[in-house]
Amino acid sequence: MSGEVIQFRRTTPTLAPILSLTATAMNSVNSIILDRMQSEIPLIPTLAGHLIAGGGKRMRPMLTLAGAELVGYQGTRHHKLAAAVEFIHTATLLHDDVVDGSEMRRGKEAANIVFGNPATVLVGDFLFSRSFELMVEDGSLKVLKILSGASAIIAQGEVDQLTAQRKIETSEERYLHIIGAKTAALFAAASRIAAVVAERTDAEEQALDDYGRNLGIAFQLVDDAIDYDTGTEEMGKDRGDDFREGKMTLPVILAYARGSDEERRFWQEAIAGFRTEDEDLAHAVELIRRHDAVAATRERARHFAQRACDALSIFPDGKARQAMVEAAQFAVSRGY
């Protein structure tokens, strides 16, 4: 099987196969999440539930469950670990919304708007703590090392992004390094631990890590493209958040590199925070479309998604592999 090239589907991909593959196990994971977000302090489950019950694709824990199916794992350890992965992700979202001053998350008011910044940060801390409790209960030092390491990398990536904010000179290389840390690290860890609990080979561990890492980069590239390509009603967050926050995402980096001197002056003022009105956002979107920056960003995402699919070539073809391939293809084609 090694070296096989897995071709992209010609039809529109969906998450249906991976949702079906992981449905039974995800019910167990959701029960663990619901149980472990409880506290005698009523505000904690109320605030956590505001985000956790608000939907989301559950992509990261789904990768742990799908990976377990792929390697033929027969136990249940991965259920608690998938819940730990989701708690890490949820904690980072709560903290991100405070840092960014976000007003929307998953189509409704962000927790920081409803409950305030202090409570949102502290409940994020609570969920991080719960994730580590679940890891310790699993008892594997290797799993603990992978997930705790990913948590540290995510935090570093967020700080790196913060220091790159409003800096027009941010390069594509640095941008990819940032998203590799803040997004892809957890995708990689979530995928890898499936092979660890199943006690599979180092090569299979690495293959799942490569799958998750490349999928995570593709996923974030598309998220960043969507911010300049989709209305709020489809996105579930305010369109133009990245623009107003002065984030140098790939669509902006490409449009700036390809722009005229006049267009570059606009970007310099906008990213510095001097051009943040609705008409400025509209002009930014026009410039990004003029230079095909969204299409180019999606093409980069397609490249990483293909790498994710190719990483699975060491595993035999079957329902699990096909579902994981289609999930990678969905990550590129989605509009939300």
Rank of each mutant, 00 (worst) to 15 (best):
G259K: 08
F243D: 06
D238Q: 13
P251H: 09
P251Q: 14
D242Q: 04
D227E: 05
K247I: 02
S260T: 15
D227F: 01
E234A: 14
K247F: 06
Y228A: 05
K237T: 08
D241Y: 00
F243G: 00
R244K: 13
D261C: 09
T232H: 11
R264Y: 00
D227L: 05
Y256F: 14
G246W: 03
W267S: 03
D242T: 03
R239P: 04
R265N: 15
D241C: 07
G240L: 03
M235D: 02
M248Q: 05
L254C: 09
K237C: 12
D242V: 00
F243A: 01
R264C: 06
G259C: 15
R239C: 07
G236Y: 06
L250V: 01
L254R: 10
K237F: 12
E233K: 15
I253S: 01
F266Y: 10
R244P: 02
T232D: 14
F266G: 07
G240K: 00
R264V: 01
G231I: 05
G236D: 10
L254F: 12
M235A: 13
M248V: 03
T230A: 15
P251G: 09
M235F: 09
S260K: 11
M248G: 02
F243T: 01
D227K: 04
E245P: 01
D261A: 15
E234S: 10
G246H: 04
D261F: 09
G231E: 15
R239L: 06
E245C: 08
E245T: 04
Y256N: 13
D238M: 09
Y228V: 04
L254P: 04
V252F: 07
T230F: 01
A255H: 10
D238E: 13
G246S: 12
D261P: 03
A257N: 15
R265F: 11
T249K: 02
D227Y: 02
F266C: 10
M235S: 03
M248C: 08
